[in-house]
Write a protein that binds this DNA or RNA. Structure first.
Length: 500
RNA sequence: CGGGGCGUAGCGCAGUCUGGUAGCGCGUUCGGUUCGGGACCGAAAGGUCGGAGGUUCAAAUCCUCUCGCCCCGACCA
């Protein structure tokens, strides 16, 4: 393929982190804000992807009985300090507002790093009886964590997310909620983002500060590293006790509520990039693509141009009536089709839209009009279609939805192959060290003795961490064994990898 | 926050060692020819050289401080 000075995407094999930045920039997703340290500007194309993520997740949250609400950005500093482990976990990364209205505040506010505490405060006001439960809320918000090292989408000082907060009468109900959401996230990641994930539970050292247990979905990136793509926490009664969220149960006794919290963030977009994209730029699965299809008109003169553009507009209108949404969605997802009639050569347009990840391209020229056909090409070659295809026009319009849905599925299958290629079962320490030598990383299923000491020793030696203890069906499930590091007994294999 | 690298036109970079008119490629604008995988010709616009202070007749270049970005590490969605 011809490479010119315009093609500035560093190949993955050459420099993976550079490649990631190049893809984000060339796809026009975001850029560092620079004037505000560690923050980013999410540009229209990137924000449009976030909006599609929001729309689908919101749909799923509502379908499972949750309601949206909004709580203040600023949290009294004393709130953060009420839960011992929580304050310890978040204190280093808080931004604090000490002055306002020209005066020093009596009590400083922290800019929320997450909202458990302030929501705990209001839960205490709102909940008094088991009849008030379960309380199932979600908020779409921005949060701020003063990170020492930032990367576009993957870790920024300010980021966008949703945080679900629920209160339940029993631990069993809370646990059902935690796992319901975990699977909602997993299904969303795989079904909508075509990003395969491993569902599991965090070790004590990796769990959320203040939670009893944290559950997570871990996604595989093309460099073999893992990305925590979503978390769902069993908060137990920790915040209930800290904020005195009590209710009278059916027996008339006073008890603390059982809470959960869960979230995914704009980090998902980083995961999307590193799951699918290639050396030519961004690759978007159709269900998250702000633009599904670009029509590139081909012509040699004004007369042809007029005819081709007219045909392109007719085609665009027909395609725009196609609804990509799933049967149970509460919104419609009509195809977004763009005609690129800029005064550029077609080849330049092809590269332009490929860098931006548009799933489907149609070339429409005089020959196609003559033969009543269209020339189609998918963003990446898959068994669905490889290279260009020439399809009778009517047949194409009739099957365009299926083409995109099949392409979506093919991207998931392809991502699963990437993951499978990087997934290994390792039983000896030497093999383990070799698998993580230098910058290398894989998804390694290994036995671990269950102690934080061994976990820390493994991390110290290799930089690999325990990403999760898999839920049933998520790992090899081949029974007990001996710890790869200590040689002591292990109940089952855990997922180890370097992480973002 | 420690170690390393880097800030010069929208993007990518040269120029810095050895101080002396701020350059190149791509992109952008205008005109024309082109158009099925990154076109070509002609004309043009565009830069307080990240910022502040200093040394000097003279600073992108030397010195001090500072801000930001990237990579590695520790901390983390």
């Amino acid at each position: 393929m011809a490479q010119t000075a315009e093609a500035r995407i560093t190949p993955r094999a050459e420099d993976y982190p550079k490649w990631y930045q190049d893809v984000v920039r060339e796809a026009d997703l975001a850029e560092p804000a620079k004037v505000v340290k560690g923050c980013m500007v999410i540009k229209p194309h990137g924000y449009a992807i976030w909006e599609k993520i929001q729309r689908e997740l919101d749909n799923r949250f509502r379908a499972t009985g949750h309601e949206n609400a909004y709580f203040p950005l600023l949290v009294p500093q004393s709130f953060i300090q009420k839960e011992a482990e929580h304050v310890e976990g978040f204190a280093p990364e808080l931004a604090v507002v000490t002055h306002a209205g020209g005066e020093e505040l009596e009590e400083p506010y922290v800019i929320r790093p997450t909202s458990e505490t302030i929501i705990g405060h209001f839960f205490a006001k709102w909940i008094s009886s088991y009849r008030d439960l379960p309380l199932l809320l979600n908020q779409w918000a921005n949060v701020m964590r003063w990170e020492l090292r930032t990367r576009l989408f993957l870790r920024t000082t300010e980021f966008l997310w949703q945080e679900g907060h629920t209160a339940h009468a029993t631990h069993e109900e809370a646990m059902e909620e935690v796992l319901r959401i975990l699977h909602l996230y997993g299904d969303f990641a795989e079904g909508h983002m075509a990003m395969p994930v491993v569902r599991g539970r965090k070790t004590a050292s990796e769990k959320f500060a203040g939670a009893l247990e944290s559950y997570c979905i871990e996604a595989h990136m093309q460099d073999g590293k893992a990305l925590q793509a979503g978390t769902s926490h069993d908060l137990g009664q920790n915040f209930g006790k800290a904020f005195d969220v009590r209710f009278q149960n059916e027996a008339g006794e006073l008890d603390y509520v059982w809470q959960t919290s869960w979230g995914v963030s704009t980090r998902l977009i980083g995961g999307l990039v590193m799951t699918h994209s290639d050396d030519d730029g961004l690759v978007l699965p159709p269900r998250l693509a702000p633009i599904h299809c670009v029509i590139v008109p081909i012509y040699r003169n004004d007369e042809q141009r007029a005819r081709v553009l007219e045909a392109a507009e007719t085609l665009r209108r027909e395609l725009s009536a196609i609804d990509l949404s799933e049967p149970d969605a509460r919104y419609r997802d009509f195809l977004e089709v763009v005609i690129d009639d800029r005064d550029m050569r077609p080849g330049a347009k092809f590269y332009h839209w490929e860098r931006r990840g548009v799933p489907l391209r149609i070339e429409l020229g005089p020959k196609d009009l003559e033969k009543d056909q269209v020339c189609t090409k998918l963003r990446v070659d898959t068994p669905v279609q490889s290279g260009k295809a020439f399809v009778p026009r009517a047949e194409f319009v009739a099957t365009a939805r299926k083409l995109l849905v099949d392409f979506q599925d093919a991207l998931l299958a392809r991502a699963r192959e990437f993951q499978a290629r990087d997934t290994v079962v390792i039983d000896t320490w030497d093999d383990f060290v070799a698998a993580f030598a230098g910058e290398k990383s894989v998804f390694a299923w290994c036995h671990w003795d269950g102690t934080p000491e061994t976990e820390a020793a493994i991390k110290e030696a290799t930089k690999a961490t325990i990403r999760c203890i898999p839920l049933p069906g998520q790992g090899p499930d081949d029974g007990p064994g001996t710890c790869i590091k200590s040689g002591r007994p292990s109940a089952g294999r855990v997922l180890m990898a370097k992480a973002y």
